[in-house]
């Protein structure tokens, strides 16, 4: 983690605000690749929050990092903290850039489909595609015009309440051989686009999506950490990873969203049902492993190797 200063906070739309971070001494920050995200740490009262946000600034520009945060009033509180409490001048801790949604540079063409705030990872990729001289097509889908966060001259804007909804089959059917598809947006939108592409014959290796899972709340449950000899209760609005950290038990992590695999943990005993919510484990691993960043448990007792 590096400590950076929040230097600018600019509203982009009624719900989306851009934040810029710079090194307190003006030192350059590590460059990154388009589609990368950073983990932002927020000290919200006595709760330590860590949320992942896509980097929207030019990946080659180390002068600062920019993210865009959509306010989610029903969320766990991270976006509310950023909108209400984060103010220019504040020092905040950010992780190193990590990319789980990189461009496939072997593609002959890149078809980028964004839904709402799902435009953010593409904002880092566009300068990269422009520099490479790569062929790309960007479809930016919003419900209403006031959701538009950025004006992108190269994008085709689809506003559903103005009747300019994207003709998905038409777009998918018109792509040359070697096109890769990237979609980022709501879980529903991602599923709809991927299902349609698969039905039209797109192979899985040409399909890419990114959805950050916020750890969804659930019933409290107990977990026994065999190596640390501790039994913890995971609260309703807490993830198991957060409960481990609060108890001083170290678990590695990167994305905290069920995608990177870093916090994968062995299950030693399970008297009950694991509620797997990650995108990482294979089906044949689900009876012996758990991703504590997003997954939960219902039952008597879960024993893990931590």
């Amino acid at each position: 983690m590096i400590q950076l200063r929040l230097t600018d906070k600019t509203p982009l739309s009624p719900r989306i605000t851009r934040f810029r971070f710079q090194h307190p001494d003006g030192a350059p920050l590590p460059v990154f690749s388009g589609g990368a995200h950073v983990m932002v740490e927020m000290q919200d009262g006595d709760i330590l929050r860590r949320n992942a946000y896509s980097l929207i600034s030019d990946p080659q520009d180390g002068s600062g990092y920019e993210i865009a945060v959509q306010r989610e009033d029903q969320g766990r509180g991270g976006s509310r903290f950023m909108h209400e409490q984060a103010q220019p001048g504040m020092l905040m801790r950010l992780g190193q850039p990590v990319n789980l949604f990189g461009l496939n540079l072997t593609a002959r063409k890149h078809l980028l489909i964004a839904g709402g705030v799902g435009i953010t990872p593409f904002l880092g990729q566009i300068p990269e595609l422009d520099r490479l001289g790569a062929d790309y097509e960007l479809r930016y889908c919003v419900r209403s015009r006031d959701e538009v966060a950025v004006d992108l001259p190269g994008a085709q804007l689809h506003v559903s309440d103005e009747g300019s909804r994207m003709d998905l089959d038409g777009v998918l059917g018109a792509q040359p051989i070697g096109t890769h598809l990237y979609v980022c947006g709501s879980a529903r939108m991602i599923a709809a686009v991927l299902d349609r592409a698969t039905a039209l014959g797109w192979p899985p290796d040409a399909l890419h999506s990114e959805e950050f899972l916020a750890p969804a709340p659930g019933e409290p449950f107990d977990v026994h950490c065999a190596r640390s000899h501790k039994t913890l209760t995971v609260g309703a609005h807490q993830s198991m990873l957060e409960a481990l950290e609060a108890a001083g038990i170290d678990a590695p992590w990167l994305c905290r969203g069920g995608a990177c695999g870093q916090c994968e943990t062995d299950v030693l005993a399970c008297d009950g049902q694991i509620d797997h919510r990650d995108h990482w484990l294979h089906d044949d691993e689900r009876n012996r492993k758990i991703m504590p960043c997003v997954s939960r448990f219902r039952g008597q007792l879960l024993t893990i190797d931590r």
Binding site: L172, G173, A174, Q175, P176, I177, G178, T179, L181, L200, G201, W202, P203, A206
Partner: peptide, 10 residues
């Protein structure tokens, strides 16, 4: 065979 082909070809 590929000259007019589009993604969706298997």
């Amino acid at each position: 065979a590929l000259s007019q082909a589009r993604m969706g070809l298997q």
